[in-house]
Structure formats: C-alpha cells, structure tokens
Design a protein around this nucleic acid. Sequence first.
DNA 1: TTTCATACTAAGCAAATGTTTAGGTGTTTT
DNA 2: AAAACACCTAAACATTTGCTTAGTATGAAA
Lengths: 211, 211
Amino acid sequence: MKDLTVRQQEVLGYLQLHMREHGTWPSFREIEQHFGFRSTNAVMGHIRALERKGYISRIPGQARTYRINLDLNDDSPPREALDVLEIPVYGHIAAGYPDGVETSGEIGRLQIDVESAGIRRSRRSFGLKVRGESMVDAGIFDGDTVIVEQSAPKDGDIVAALIDGETTLKRFVNKPGEPPYLKAENRRYPTLHPVAELVVQGVARAVVRHL
Amino acid sequence: MKDLTVRQQEVLGYLQLHMREHGTWPSFREIEQHFGFRSTNAVMGHIRALERKGYISRIPGQARTYRINLDLNDDSPPREALDVLEIPVYGHIAAGYPDGVETSGEIGRLQIDVESAGIRRSRRSFGLKVRGESMVDAGIFDGDTVIVEQSAPKDGDIVAALIDGETTLKRFVNKPGEPPYLKAENRRYPTLHPVAELVVQGVARAVVRHL
DNA sequence: TTTCATACTAAGCAAATGTTTAGGTGTTTT
DNA sequence: AAAACACCTAAACATTTGCTTAGTATGAAA
C-alpha cells in the first residue's frame, strides 16, 4: 500500500476515532467540522485519496458507509520473547466490535502471553465469558473464558458465532459438498444445522478456567 | 430491560448482522428490503420500539447512526493495571518445588494476570503440563496447563500431589473423621484411597488450554 | 517551465435517508 | 366491549448527506 500524507493519516485516524467513540462512521460534514474545513469538498479529496491508496472502501452515494481495509499481508511470526497481550473480555458481544474497540459491554480484562493463548498479535482477539453448557463435551464449561481470534474458521474449529443477537460457542463443521453448520458439543443440545445466517466472529484459540 | 417480541429480536439481530458483515449500520430502506416490508414506516415502528425498550440508541435525523446498548447494570468494572505474573511450566515435577531459580526441568513459561489465574503474587506458583486422562471429568485434559499455587488444600480442591516420584493431578478429599485421600475425576481411574505419603505440592487455581 | 499531486474555498444539485400523517388488521389486556 | 399494543401499507415531506463543478494556492517532480 502506498504511503499516506500526514493529513491523510489524520483523516484516517479520525474515521477510526469516531467509530470507536460513537460506533458509527462520520458523515462528510462531521469530518469537515472536526478539521475546521469550510467545504465538504476538502473531505472528498481526502476520502478519495484514502480510497485510491487502498486504505478504505465505501459504497458511493450511501451515507456513513466506510470500511477500513487492514492489510494482513504479514507472514513471518517473529518468535520473540514472551509477548503479553491484553485482551478485553465480554459477557456477550453485540455489534461494533471489529472496527471499534468498544469498551462498553466489557466485563473485564485478561492478560496472557501470545504463545500460551496460541494467538497472533496481528490478529484482533477478545475474550468471551462462556455461558451455558453447550460445549461441556469439548471441555468448555459455564464460566470459562475463551480467547477468540478473528480469523477464518476451518472445519472442526470451535467458533464464536452470532445467532439471534447473542454470541454462542459452537463447533464449526464444513464438510465438502454441504453448507457449513454449527454443532454443539453436548448430547443434550441440538445441532444447529443449516443456519440461515451464519456469522462467525472468530475462532477459539484458548480456554482459561478459574477453578 | 423489557422483553422484545420475536419480530423485534429479528430486527435487532439484523442490525448486528449488517454491522458484522458490512461494518456499517443499515439504512431504513435496507432494513425494509431485508424483511420484505413495503413501507419504511414498518421499520420505524421497530426501531422506535427497540429504542423505547432501551436496546438501541440513535441520533434522530442522521443516517445509519445506531448504537446498541449492552446492559451494563453490573457494578463498576475497576479498570486497574493488571498484575502479570510469569510462571514456569514443568512437564513433571519430582522432588518438590525447586528452590532457587532452577530452570532445569522447565519446559516453558507462561504469563498471565493474577486475576484471571486466581493466584496471589505472594504465593509461589508454577504451571504443570497435564499428562493423562485422570481428570477429564473435571474438564482437565491431556496437554492442558494447570496453574498451581502453593497453599494448603481444602476439601474438594484439585491438587498437584506427589506420588511415586511423579506429580499427578487429583481431587483432594478430606472428610471429617477419616484421613484425606485423592480421587481421580475419571471413572476408569481408581481412587487412590489412603495414600501412604500424601505430599500435596499445591492447589490448582486455573487451567489454560491451547485449542 | 510545465506538469502533477496535495489541499483547500465556494456554491449548489440530487440522491439517500429519516420522519410524519393517515390509515388498516389483528391479538392481548383491562 | 373497549382500550392498548404490535405490526403493517401508502404517500408525501424535509433533512441529511454525498457529489459535482469551478476556482485558488503550494510544493514536488518531469
């Protein structure tokens, strides 16, 4: 990706800031105000530049529809010393997470080194306080904290998925030839077969249980 | 918070789904289309209901400016600096806990904040890589790392105990009137009733599993 | 110098979007 | 039975908001 000018970085930063603070993207006029511009066309120029350089995407004509493209081209995980990561823990996750590090709804924080947790610093991760017994056969109990990394799920992964506005933990099954579905690891719970809208929020990488 | 109707839950779910998939909130007309409404006022009704019941907030007149209110009725989350502890991990522990900074036998290190691990800095703690299946019914599996704190065991605690030169994980049972013994949490394993020399090395406080 | 990119002001248009008013049909509660 | 509420259609209406065109200025690159 091409480099950004100082001003363009400021604008990009403001986009993210606004998302963090308000959970919504700013309109052109809000950006204009924030920077003290006297014309929305000043905004237009920067937005176009950011788009052209690949840092954001938008849907032309629609209001407040930004999208930040984070490049995940990095490949080599540099095996350093123990790298401790601070992870927000949620009781349940609603909307707004990926682009806004929304602290409301956070019920705690957890620090663990990346190696024990099996996560990468480059990926965004969060903790999830497990509720319910649907994963007991996989050794995940009510009250456990699961560390979830935002990445694409593979068959057999335990994933945090969004169903009916609640995030639940299930095993992701993706056999060739059939659509993916979610399976609970408890005989008493049903397999959520072809789910209408399956939104995987992340893949569980580690479990921390406080005995 | 008041309960939502089925339809209202669907709308709330769609708000979150759209946020997840597109990173933006849907407009009224997008909601209308998704549910097959023929009037944006159908959307208006649901949005108003969700707002009235406290599930979302918005900025009137502005486009795509939702905000989901997670109920944070619980007390204040004290955002303090977490105290991170570095813990040596052993594959097996023979003679007691090594004094000094003996790193031989150590197979790794783990860092975690004291709160998540449920340990005190004042006490000596170490990690133990679990081998065997003797504690599966307690949700501790082969390969898990257990964080053990050196302290006196209470009845029902899971302890690291020294038996035959090997440290194993068992549940400590100490009923009044009879001598304490160790019990495996797996039907296929025997209860180690009156053990000749019962040396408890520490009490398990947390489990960390790398999925 | 000329050209190009950045960085803006200014004014206005048109589409996107939220909002209102006026109904209609059920179901549940009083 | 009446009132209250959930749920929806229909048609405007008004604001928000993206977008365009026109023009000024500066500094770097060709």
